[in-house]
C-alpha cells in the first residue's frame, strides 16, 4: 500500500499507544457508545464526532500522509482541512470531524492513501 522509498519516517502501528494527552473530559463519560479503532474498543460520548473521540483517546495520529508518511491529527474540526481523514466502516478518506460516532462503528487510521476499490473491513 503506497510504500515508497521515502517512507515511512514514522512507522504505522496498529496499537493505540497514546501520544501526549492533549484533551481531557469536562465530565466523566455517561451515555457512552463503543466503537472500534484499529480493532480496539474505544468509548465515546453519544452525539460527538469521531475526531473528538480519537482526540479523547489520545491517539498520536489518525493518518499518515501519502506523500511522506508524516503523522497528522485533526486541525480545524469544521470540515475544511481534511487532516482528519480515517477509514470508517470500510470506506476510506472519511472526515472524522464531520462524522458522528455510532455504537459498533469500525474506525481505522490510514497509512498513506486508502485502497480505492476494496473495503479493508469486511
Amino acid at each position: 500500500m503506497n510504500e515508497s522509498l521515502t517512507r515511512p519516517a514514522f512507522a504505522y502501528s496498529s496499537g493505540l499507544q497514546p501520544g501526549p494527552k492533549m484533551f481531557s473530559d469536562l465530565a466523566p463519560l455517561t451515555d457512552a457508545v463503543t466503537l472500534s479503532v484499529d480493532g480496539q474498543p474505544v468509548r465515546a460520548r453519544a452525539g460527538e464526532t469521531v475526531a473528538a473521540c480519537l482526540l479523547r483517546a489520545g491517539v498520536p495520529y489518525n493518518r499518515l500522509t501519502p506523500v511522506s508518511g508524516a503523522p497528522r491529527l485533526p486541525y480545524c474540526m469544521i470540515g475544511h482541512c481534511f487532516e482528519c481523514l480515517v477509514e470508517i466502516d470500510g470506506i476510506g478518506n472519511r472526515q472524522a470531524c464531520l462524522t458522528l460516532v455510532r455504537d459498533g462503528m469500525k474506525v481505522r487510521r490510514q497509512d498513506g492513501a486508502p485502497p480505492a476499490l476494496e473495503p479493508s473491513v469486511p
Binding site: A27, E48, T49, P71, L73, P74, M77, I78, E83
Partner: peptide
C-alpha cells in the same frame, strides 16, 4: 502540520460539541 497544532476554532468546537478541554 505537526499533531498538537490546532486552530482556536477547533479547540472551541471540541469544547462545545465534544465536551473536551485541552490539557498539558
Amino acid at each position: 502540520t505537526l499533531p498538537g497544532v490546532m486552530t482556536a476554532g477547533a479547540v472551541q468546537t471540541l469544547l462545545k460539541a465534544g465536551h473536551l478541554k485541552p490539557s498539558g
